[in-house]
Computed example of a mutant assay.
Amino acid sequence: MAMPLFIYLHGFNSSPDSIKARQFQAAMTAAGRADDVLVPALSHWPAEAIAQTEALIRQHQGRDITLIGSSLGGYYSLWLGERYQVRAVLVNPAVRPYELLAEMLGQQSNLYTGEAYTLTEQHLQQMLAIDVPSLSQPQNYLLLTQTDDETLDYRQAVDKLTDSPMLIQQGGDHGFRQFEAMIPAILAFSEGRVELPEVPGLPSVDS
């Protein structure tokens, strides 16, 4: 039987070279599972990013797929999870990015690639078009969030995923400190198990 396939979706102005993406790929490579991870370079256009990921899901139809979505990638993962009924691990996910990014319209540059583009109202409309009002299968989602996220209000994700398994850690940051410690939990979740670790220095918060 084929092992689960992971598709990692990076966040806003990020890339496959992001720290968490590289950490996850390194862990999977060390486990002899490098071929079980896909990390697409997502377009800054939300509709194109969704289409890119849908193509990968369809290409691997028949395999057990788990999405790992960071920040804006977490928002995408909610829509994709609902459409394709696949599991998704959401790492400090954006819940209403069309509101958050409304204050950042104008010139942007990808932090990793240097690609320059203009963030427009059309970007926000494409995000709003894939908003998920409610979750049909909340058990398909695992929320990993830290309370000191300087970019997003973690409580929005907690409220959105109130019926899903979650790990809320006191402290941390938007990049999700000590992400490597979460990888065993991500692997377990891809196989239908919820095994949430305790991380020294980042105590869990009751949800």
Rank of each mutant, 00 (worst) to 15 (best):
L9Q: 06
A47C: 07
G11N: 10
Y117T: 10
L67P: 01
V37R: 01
Q59F: 06
E54K: 08
M28Q: 02
Y98W: 15
T66D: 04
N92A: 14
A31T: 00
S43P: 01
L9H: 03
R22V: 11
I68G: 06
Y84A: 09
V39H: 04
Q107W: 10
A49H: 01
P46C: 05
L80T: 07
V86D: 02
S15T: 02
I57T: 10
Q108F: 07
S18L: 02
T120N: 07
A21H: 07
A30W: 00
G11F: 04
I65W: 10
T120R: 05
E103A: 15
I65E: 07
L38Y: 07
P46L: 11
L119P: 03
Q85F: 01
G73F: 02
E115K: 11
A31V: 00
L72G: 03
A116I: 11
G81H: 02
E99T: 09
P97S: 10
G69A: 12
R22N: 10
A34F: 01
P46D: 08
T53E: 12
A26F: 02
D36E: 14
V95A: 10
T53D: 12
A30P: 00
A34R: 06
P46Y: 10
A94M: 05
G106S: 13
I57H: 13
R33C: 02
T53Q: 03
M28G: 00
T118C: 14
A47Y: 04
S18V: 01
L101V: 04
A55N: 03
A31I: 00
I50T: 11
A27C: 09
L80E: 10
D64P: 00
S14H: 08
P40I: 07
T66A: 09
I19G: 06
G69H: 08
A102S: 15
L9C: 05
D17S: 09
I19L: 13
G74T: 03
V39W: 01
Q59L: 14
N92F: 12
L111P: 00
A26R: 13
E115T: 13
A116C: 05
A31G: 00
S70G: 09
L38A: 11
P40F: 14
Y98H: 14
G73N: 05
Y76K: 10
D17F: 01
I65S: 03
A51N: 09
S15E: 03
